[in-house]
């Protein structure tokens, strides 16, 4: 049986011969993981996640020359995807803040206790853990959410997550710790 072509070979073909079939193979291989990551980051907004995933792969194609193989190709893609998501989140926040800054601030303060109440109610009704977790994740800060998604869902080490998020390892650890504390508070019904 023929050996499967490695990512490195496909990248070389795309770079040297401008081989779009090789890049399409890379997209096919990694689309599920990238889209799943973005679905997590966008708190389940599938349409937005797919738009960002498309932007991620287009940027990957444009910047393929700058990929130095210091990380796995998938990790490099996660980095681009996270940057796309952060840029989009900032843009949305700026648009919202322009309209109703006070209302947003009030909502942010209320978010966590609100989820905790709903978790109790939903848990009693037997609602799925996944949905509750997704809602609790949506209430985390962008840094906390991104750190937890990279370390748990993408199973990256703290060092790899730091590369993806473009911040020091210590910051990743802090984000993960704070994020987990907030999730614990929001989902304490599951810890009992």
């Amino acid at each position: 049986m023929a050996e499967p072509v490695t990512d490195a070979t496909l990248i070389a073909r795309a770079l040297v011969a401008d081989d779009r079939h090789a890049f399409a193979e890379l997209v096919k291989r990694h689309q599920s993981a990238v889209r799943a990551t973005l679905r997590r980051l966008t708190a389940g907004n599938h349409a937005l996640a797919d738009d960002l995933a498309q932007e991620t792969f287009v940027l990957a194609w444009r910047n393929l020359k700058s990929f130095r193989q210091e990380a796995k190709f998938s990790t490099w893609l996660y980095r681009i995807a996270t940057n796309c998501w952060l840029a989009d989140a900032r843009k949305r926040k700026e648009e919202l803040l322009g309209d109703r800054a006070d209302a947003i601030a009030a909502e942010d303060d209320d978010t966590m206790p609100h989820i905790a109440d709903e978790v109790h109610a939903d848990h009693a009704k037997g609602a799925t853990l996944r949905m509750d977790l997704e809602r609790a994740m949506a209430a985390l800060s962008e840094g906390e959410r991104a750190a937890i998604v990279q370390c748990y869902h993408n199973d990256l080490t703290h060092e790899e997550a730091a590369y993806v998020l473009g911040c020091p390892v210590g910051t990743v650890k802090t984000h993960v710790l704070r994020g987990k504390q907030k999730l614990k508070a929001a989902l304490e019904a599951y810890g009992r």
Binding site: V27, Q31, D50, Q54, F57, V58, W61
Partner: peptide
């Protein structure tokens, strides 16, 4: 995939 790869490829410069 459901056509995702095709959409990406058509969006490439």
């Amino acid at each position: 995939d459901d056509g995702f790869t095709a959409r990406v490829m058509s969006a490439l410069p």
